[in-house]
Amino acid sequence: MTTLHGPGASALLHRWPTAVGLLVALAAVLGGADRDGVATTVAVAASCYVAAAAFSLPWMAWAWIPIASVLAVGGGFLRVDPVVTTGAVVAVLVVVGLLRGASRPALTLETAGFLGYGVVVVVALLLSPGVGLVLAALTLVAHGVWDVWHLRRHRDTVSPSLAEFCVALDVPLGLAVLVLWAAPM
């Protein structure tokens, strides 16, 4: 039986968020990532940052992933677009954050980020499927840049492991979708 020892193993274990992000990106690509799925991924990812700011708990971004995913799917059962459901839930998060006395600069920053990415993915959903897919994928890659910025500058707002996970999910998934879209059939 082989065991992990030494500094290489420690570094590998330290990068678990990257490994998980890459696995989720791969699963999304193999599952046939489409415009709606990529747009929902952007909305859920951005909502995680708002949740962390609203509760002033960096780890809340991790807890928010399954919550936002369930809410997005649940909205779909009610025939409400997952991006619209996520936007409504973010509005509630902002109110909760304000009532809780969350840091106004953090809540404002994350809400502005959600609104910016949200507007772009709503536009992507209104475009033809191919053009919308490209715009949603580019938005996902841009959210990866947002993730890197948080990883380097806003570690107090969002858990660094979550930001690292998101970089490893957003950028590879967005780029893979673009490559697959551009590849000849």
Rank of each mutant, 00 (worst) to 15 (best):
G74I: 02
G75M: 04
A39I: 01
T40N: 08
P66Y: 01
V50H: 02
G74S: 09
L78E: 13
A52I: 04
T41E: 11
G32S: 10
S47L: 12
I65F: 14
S69P: 10
D36G: 13
F55R: 03
W59A: 15
F77C: 10
A39D: 05
A43W: 02
M60D: 05
G32P: 03
T40I: 08
A52C: 12
T41F: 10
G75R: 04
A43L: 10
A53G: 07
V73K: 10
P66N: 12
L71A: 12
A52K: 03
A33V: 03
W59F: 14
S56G: 12
D34T: 06
L71K: 06
V50S: 09
A39S: 07
A54W: 07
L78R: 14
A53P: 00
C48L: 10
G76R: 02
I65E: 00
A53E: 11
A45N: 11
L78Y: 10
P66A: 11
W62G: 00
V50D: 00
I67S: 07
V73E: 13
L57S: 10
V38G: 07
G37A: 04
V50P: 01
A51N: 06
Y49Q: 14
A72Y: 06
A61T: 07
V70T: 11
W59N: 11
A33N: 06
S69N: 13
A51M: 12
G37L: 01
S56H: 00
V42I: 01
S56C: 02
V44T: 08
V70W: 15
A51W: 12
A61S: 15
R35E: 11
V44H: 09
A54Y: 07
G75Y: 09
M60Y: 08
V50W: 05
G32R: 08
A63I: 14
A63W: 03
V44S: 03
G37W: 08
F55D: 06
L78C: 13
I67F: 15
A51R: 09
G74F: 04
P66Q: 05
R35H: 06
A63V: 14
G37M: 10
D36T: 13
V38L: 08
A68L: 00
V50L: 08
T41L: 15
S69C: 13
V50N: 07
G75L: 09
L78Q: 09
S69K: 05
P58W: 04
D36E: 15
A46S: 14
L57R: 08
V44M: 07
R35T: 09
F77K: 14
A43P: 14
F55S: 14
V42Q: 00
R35D: 01
A53R: 00
A63S: 13
F55W: 10
S47I: 06
A61W: 02
